[in-house]
Computed example of a mutant assay.
Amino acid sequence: MALLHNRVSKAEMKDKLFAETEPRTTFSFYRYLDIAEPVAFRDELYMGLEKLRVFGRIYVAAEGINGQASVPASRLEECRAFLYAIPGLEDLRLNVAVEDDGKSFWVLKIKVRDKIVADGIEDPTFSVNRKGHYVNAKEFNRLTADPNTIVVDMRNHYEYEVGHFEGAIEVPSDTFREQLPMAVDLLKGQEDKNIIMYCTGGIRCEKASAWMLHNGFQNVFHLEGGIIEYANKAKEWGLDNRFRGKNFVFDNRMGERIGGEVIAHCHQCGEPCDTHVNCANDGCHLLFIQCRSCAEKYKGCCSETCRDGASLDTAARMEKPLHFNKSRHRSLGT
C-alpha cells in the first residue's frame, strides 16, 4: 500500500530540495466545490501529486480545495493534466508565482479541514455559490478609475502593511473570520456602490463577495485570481500596475515583488523595509519586519531579550513593545 504522508525528517527533505538541479515552479490554486468524501479525495490527490514530486501545503474540505505548491518545471503541465482529470477540477486556474526561487516548499502536506478558509460563518442560509462578479486586471483598472468605486483588501494586517492596491481600504485584523463582519460594518450605508474585493490568490475575496451580497450589498466584484493573477496579466497585457509594494505569500519566500516601491518600515529602527522574518529565537518565532542592519544587530531576533536569551517564556513575550503585539503579527509556519 502506498504511503499517504511524508515520513522523512524536515532537515532531510530540505537537503534533498537544495540538492535538486532542476528549477521548480511555485503555484497556487483553489476551487469551491462540493466534495462528498474529503478523505478519499485527499488520498487520491496525495498519491498523484507525490508521484510528480510536488511539494506544498493543500487543504481539502467538503466546500472545496485550497493549495500552494511547487513542482519540477518540466512536470508542470503533467501536474496540470492530473488535476484537470479529477472531477470538479477541470480547467482549474493555477496561479504561477510572480517571483520564484523554487525553494518555497520542501514537503507535501495535504490535510482535511472543516473549511478551506476559516470564516466563522454559522448562518445556514449562506452560500458561497452566490458570489460577486469576477473582474480581470483590465476591468479592475477601469472600475477603480471611478472615484465612486470602493476597493477592499481582504487580507491580514501584516499582508496589507507591505503592499496593497492604490486607495484600498484595510480591514485591520489578523483573521479572515474577524474581517467578514468588520467589512459589512465598515461599508454600511454604501450598499449601492461598486465594491471590489481582493486578496492574494482569490479564495478569500470570493467568499467575502458572497458574504457581502448575503448582507444586502448589490454591486459586488472580486478580483479574479487575486493579486498574483493581476500582476501576471498586467505585465502580459501592458497595463498600468496599480499595486504598490510587495505581495506577502504563505511559504518560505514570505513575499514577492509586485510594485517597485517599499511602503513598509523596519519594526526596530523605522527605516524603509518590507522583509518579513521569523524571530531567530525558537522560543519566540514572532513574524515581523526587519532590515539588514537590525538583522545583524539583533542576530535575526525581534528584541534584545530574544537575542540574549536561550528561550522566551510567556511572561517575557508580554513585555515586548506594542509594535510586536501578537494581535498584529504572528508566527508563520512553513
Rank of each mutant, 00 (worst) to 15 (best):
H265N: 14
V171G: 02
E261I: 13
N215P: 00
F165Q: 07
G255Q: 11
N219T: 13
K207I: 13
E229I: 13
S209F: 04
L223Q: 06
V277D: 08
G270C: 10
G226Q: 01
V162T: 03
M182K: 06
D185W: 03
E271A: 15
G189A: 00
V162N: 01
P181H: 03
Q190D: 04
H267I: 12
I195K: 02
D274A: 10
M254Q: 13
K235V: 14
A280C: 07
I228T: 15
E159N: 13
G245E: 06
Y230T: 08
R204P: 02
K188E: 10
G270S: 04
L213Q: 01
Q179W: 07
L223G: 05
L286T: 08
E224Q: 09
I169S: 01
D282Y: 06
E191A: 07
L186I: 05
T275N: 14
I227N: 01
F248P: 00
Y198K: 05
G202T: 12
G259H: 12
V249M: 03
A231C: 05
K233D: 14
Y198M: 02
V184M: 02
L223P: 00
Y160H: 14
S173I: 00
K188R: 15
G260E: 08
I203C: 03
G189D: 01
H276I: 09
D240H: 15
C269V: 09
V220S: 04
L187R: 03
M212C: 06
Q179H: 02
A280F: 11
L239I: 11
P181S: 03
K188Q: 15
C279K: 10
D282Q: 12
Y160E: 12
I196H: 04
G201M: 07
G202W: 06
R177D: 08
F217A: 11
M197Q: 08
R257M: 14
V277H: 02
A234G: 12
E236P: 02
A231Y: 09
Y160D: 05
G167N: 08
K188Y: 09
D174P: 05
I195D: 04
H164C: 09
M254W: 08
C279F: 09
G259L: 10
K193P: 01
R257F: 11
E191R: 09
A280R: 11
K207C: 10
G238C: 05
E191L: 12
V262H: 07
I258S: 09
N247L: 05
D274V: 10
M212G: 05
D274F: 13
Q179I: 10
E229F: 04
K233V: 11
G163W: 15
G202F: 13
N281H: 03
C279L: 04
N281Q: 00
V277N: 00
I169Q: 00
K193R: 15
N278H: 08
L239A: 07
G260D: 12
